[in-house]
């Protein structure tokens, strides 16, 4: 309720809604200590226990991928020919080795990092492209809008997974190429959602005012339209990370994504596939990490959606 009224602090919560607008916001701010929007969002987010769990999980996973390599002296490319497919804990390998003698722990740390870097970069880029494209189409309207939407629909019917696999395999599985193609074919649906929301912003007074003041279209879009769908963009980014991890895992699993000697969670799953009953740890360790990562991102996304949406009731009051 109070989120729409800057300056009404937590101590003003007891006020009845009818009485609240009568208060002078400035006075309340001086007396009660103003809650900054960021603090408010954090408080609303923290009420959602599942989202908090997701955030903790995500932080742990990032921490593991950055500092995990200091726990072992093995490198992920190094092969230990004296210990092929040993189970966890045997002959100095924390989580065992695979059939080629690579240390699974070192591979997990590197693969998680690789999957994270790809997912976060792709999701950042797709969100940025989708946000700019959707708002630009909505701002101009008319012919420009129709042409831009037509382009999006055209890209949507293309067999994108197949094209990504084609390009990915052509460049022998370099992860930078993977980032580019996953971005190129990943932004369209989001752009369409953002466009449909931004069409209502186009008619708002502040956009009109900017237009009549002669502010350039690009400046209006970047300074007025994009910030007003900011919460949507943040949620899109988090959920985009989860879906990119899934796409990258699928690609690497069938051999068209990250390839030897590089390692990602998807390529580790492909390794584990052949020794499912003889060396199950090669499957369930990367599987557990990838599911933890996607579920954590989904929980954070849901929590953020509720925390940033002023009309949402699920975060409780304020």
């Amino acid at each position: 309720m109070a989120i729409n009224m800057p300056g009404v602090g937590p101590d003003a919560e007891g006020l009845s809604p009818a009485a609240a607008p009568a208060e002078d916001p400035a006075k309340a701010a001086r007396g009660g200590g103003r809650t900054s929007p960021l603090k408010l969002y954090a408080r609303r987010f923290a009420r959602n226990k599942a989202a908090l769990l997701g955030l903790v999980l995500f932080a742990l996973l990032v921490f593991f991928s950055v500092f995990g390599r200091f726990l072992t002296h093995w490198n992920f490319t190094e092969a230990d020919f004296t210990a092929l497919t040993v189970s966890p804990g045997v002959s100095g390998h924390l989580l065992g080795t695979n059939a080629a003698g690579n240390d699974v722990y070192a591979q997990l740390v590197h693969g998680l990092g690789r999957s994270l870097v790809i997912a976060v970069t792709v999701s950042l880029l797709t969100t940025a492209i989708a946000g700019l494209f959707g708002t630009t189409a909505a701002y101009f309207g008319g012919k420009v809008e129709r042409a831009m939407l037509g382009f999006v629909h055209f890209l949507l019917i293309l067999p994108s997974f197949l094209i990504i696999a084609l390009v990915g395999t052509h460049y022998r599985g370099e992860w930078q190429v993977l980032v580019v193609v996953l971005t190129l074919f990943g932004w369209m649906l989001t752009a369409r959602v953002i466009w449909s929301l931004a069409t209502s912003l186009r008619e708002r007074e502040y956009v009109m005012a900017a237009r009549f003041m002669g502010v350039s279209p690009m400046r209006t879009i970047v300074r007025h339209l994009v910030p007003n769908i900011g919460s949507l963009l943040i949620v899109t980014f988090t959920l985009g990370v989860a879906s990119t991890v899934q796409a990258e895992t699928a690609l690497s699993f069938i051999g068209f994504g990250v390839k030897q000697p590089d390692v990602s969670l998807g390529s580790m799953l492909a390794d584990g596939q052949n020794t499912l009953s003889t060396a199950p740890w090669l499957f369930y360790l990367p599987a557990a990490l990838v599911v933890l990562l996607t579920v954590a991102m989904a929980l954070i996304g849901d929590g953020l959606r509720d925390a940033l949406d002023p009309t949402s009731q699920s975060g409780g009051r304020a």
Binding site: A242, V245, Q246, T249, A250, F253, G266, L269, A270, G272, Q273, L276, S277, P280, F283, Y284, A287, V290, V291, T294, V295, M297, A298, L299
Partner: peptide
């Protein structure tokens, strides 16, 4: 459902195989 929605298909298929074995 949140769990299964976010499970990559490779993990789901291999887990089913593991259970069946």
């Amino acid at each position: 459902s949140v769990l299964s929605f976010n499970t990559p298909s490779a993990v789901a298929s291999l887990a089913v195989v593991l259970v069946a074995i």
